[in-house]
Design a protein around this nucleic acid. Sequence first.
DNA 1: CTGAGATAGGACATAGATGTTCTACTAAGA
DNA 2: TCTTAGTAGAACATCTATGTCCTATCTCAG
Lengths: 201, 201
Amino acid sequence: MSERTAVRERTRRTLLLAGIEVLSGTPAAPLGEVATRAGVARSTLHRYFSDRKALIAAISDFTAVEYEAAVARASVEDGTGLEAFRRLCLELMESLDILAWWMGAGLTATAQDGESEAAVAAGSDVTDETDEERLRELVARGHDDGTIDPALSAEWVESLLWSNLYACHHLQRSGSVTAFDVRSQALRGLLKAAAADPTRV
Amino acid sequence: MSERTAVRERTRRTLLLAGIEVLSGTPAAPLGEVATRAGVARSTLHRYFSDRKALIAAISDFTAVEYEAAVARASVEDGTGLEAFRRLCLELMESLDILAWWMGAGLTATAQDGESEAAVAAGSDVTDETDEERLRELVARGHDDGTIDPALSAEWVESLLWSNLYACHHLQRSGSVTAFDVRSQALRGLLKAAAADPTRV
DNA sequence: CTGAGATAGGACATAGATGTTCTACTAAGA
DNA sequence: TCTTAGTAGAACATCTATGTCCTATCTCAG
């Protein structure tokens, strides 16, 4: 039994990853393209996800869980605001391929549907503390302990983070630069930009 | 005569702007949506741009010219590398609505067609000096005169610039923050990130 | 008033994506 | 060997966007 379902689970995951790859860049891409990328027949894709809507929702859930995991690994509650910010950046960069979803199709997609079941599955600790709030607290802590530039609002820091991740993702996809080099520079730029005392970065 | 064609020119421009607005966010949006946004019948849109392809190409040209103009206004050849970078950022932010094209549909669109006639219309000064080269020179100058962080490559600075412009555009569209505030923070963040000596920003 | 430029709006055939259904093949477990 | 879960692949009706065409208005210039 566990052997049989393992196959299904693996196929499902392959489809989700293919969906992220294809639909992140081209949200309106034909589902057949997703299937092809996954090395699977279009009919098979439909057996797993009846609708396009269903696929989108499943991907959103999947990536949300991944994001939650990354944030958890970063243990954003510890240390100074800037230290936590640094750890968060590193962890998110580690899951860049999956998080790419939220830089493309995910934005416009979830704006209509609204989160589905992801929040539950991810097991939000307190009273369903949203991601923005967590980052907001992180930045506020950085403002208080004097490690994060007081001129930068939490809202902007969040935008900055995601836009840099976006740049990171695309530059390392272009292939002209090493993934390591891109991440190094991105991290350096992010920290310098966010830090109250950029010389210490 | 000049009266008649003026009408056409104005309608054309309206259509181009509507195209940027709609297609930047949703590259696969129905052309009818573009027409509606422009306050025009779909048939009228087709009288100006036979194809979807034609519309895309025209928008690409239009925005390319606007970009060239912004770069020209910035006079990137003058002053230190960082000063020039600062002027460039400011000028590009001024044309954010139009430049939004190159943060959405423009990327995937032009990757297939290839620039059409934009380069010619823009009147590239020297031997068709490409935009990346110009920025590359700017960064190189900044490296030489010690104003730009030597750890950051020109390639990354370019990505950084565009990703911050992207963040800028979306945050100020969200409406929760003043356009001025967003730009201030974006500029500050960009300069701090790029500067060799961030304390002087 | 008259004619020409410009548009609105509807009808239409076409192409492509979608979702469904059915049959046939393959591999692993009983 | 027989069975079954999983899949490939094709056929199908449907739907939406597209591009074309045509006619009715409208508004200026002569």
